[in-house]
Design a binder for these strands. Structure first.
Lengths: 218, 218
DNA sequence: AAACCACTGTTGCATATGCAACGCAAAGGG
DNA sequence: CCCTTTGCGTTGCATATGCAACAGTGGTTT
């Protein structure tokens, strides 16, 4: 349990509830489950009555379409959560499958227990709900930003959009990006070599300067 | 005020609070403001301490990047809201600009008043927060879905992803789409004629069938 | 030192896409 | 009835992109 507490303290959903974490967990009545590598944690079509917290191991969230194309939406490490959007939205059937990439333990927190302030109206419940709101809102903004990048039709536009977003975030025209080329290409959903080609071109044209992951807008 | 009540009843944030709407509005202390056509309602960089509810007129949410590329994120009609994500996330500076496309009236609801249950702890506050959660969660899912479409590299993949999502949603391989070709092209962020070309090809190949906005997966 | 490996850039080539222009059909307005 | 508008498909063409293959570099292992 002690080991779990260390992980739980880092869960954003519990931000600012540090001292009374254990009390709150009892109040929420979370269930802990273990899964073997490759085991399915949540299957497409199943209900999502709870938020999942990864306590140990690695978890993959994947989605399949009608033609069987499987795409990995995210990979989660300990202290990250999944299912919060589906649970909060009251979706009846999960559109995604969650599976254990390694042996994992997950804690499930019933969304009802999270949303409805408990009868003894403990002070932390409001904090918890506020955290959930903030998590959803932040994810919203991240998704919107990514959406805007992906809306661009050419790689050049995607790159420039991404770089100017980063510059804006850092408040500086020179900045580092947290991606390798490969990762950046994945993030922008384009081919790596094509990305390299465009970056070279932009540098030759004098639009940007870069070495490794340090970039500068001109 | 009566005219506004009709609009306010349709606001999803107030879902299920119909009878006591007026009481709740007083409790929330919303401010009403009017704007002329073209006037700026919220400027990039300003704080977003409140959720905006469009009472009349049309509102545009736009975003500009470093190079001045202006893109319209959404257009809102009466009873729709804006700023909920930024306000909920506690973002200090709005990354978007909101402007009045026509003469408009907007009601602002301070996010603090929404999140923090009032001293007299009225019953509807929890309902309100739950609605806000649901709105953010739903938007999250919509954005994720769109993201997945836009992640595909070719128009063909985007189209098939979109169509199979629709089929799944309707639970039927034959269905209608809510878009004209132009709108679908905009939604998928591709060229209209290129989209037409791909649709024709898919039909010739026998992958799909369609006439107008009625589609069928084969 | 030699042999790997991860990361990045480059390039040739087939294909996909954007763009502009045109034709056609249906709907609506004068 | 004619004219305009709108929606949709088609096509030619220049360009962008994915894909595969190769090269160079720096770091790590054997």
């Amino acid at each position: 349990m002690n080991k779990n507490l260390d992980v739980l303290r880092k869960v954003k959903l519990f931000d600012g509830i540090d001292e009374n974490l254990e009390a709150m967990l009892q109040c929420l009545g979370g269930e802990e489950k273990t899964y073997d590598r490759g085991e399915i944690i949540l299957l497409t079509g199943q209900p999502v009555p709870a938020v999942g917290v990864v306590l140990s191991g690695e978890v993959q969230v994947i989605q399949e379409d009608y033609y069987g194309n499987r795409s990995i939406l995210t990979e989660l490490s300990p202290s990250h959560i999944f299912g919060e959007a589906f649970a909060s939205a009251g979706i009846k059937e999960s559109p995604v499958t969650v599976l254990a990439k390694t042996n994992t333990t997950v804690m499930f927190l019933g969304i009802e227990r999270i949303i409805n302030t408990c009868p003894n109206s403990c002070i932390f419940h409001n904090h918890l709900i506020e955290n959930l709101l903030k998590i959803l809102a932040r994810k919203n903004i991240l998704l919107s930003n990514k959406n805007q990048l992906l809306s661009r039709r050419t790689i050049q536009d995607k790159v420039l959009s991404y770089l100017s977003l980063q510059a804006e975030k850092k408040g500086n025209l020179a900045f580092e990006i947290p991606f390798t080329r490969n990762e950046l290409a994945d993030f922008l959903c384009v081919d790596r070599s094509a990305l390299s080609r465009v970056l070279s071109k932009l540098q030759k044209e004098g639009t940007i300067e870069y070495t490794n992951n340090h970039f500068k807008l001109l």
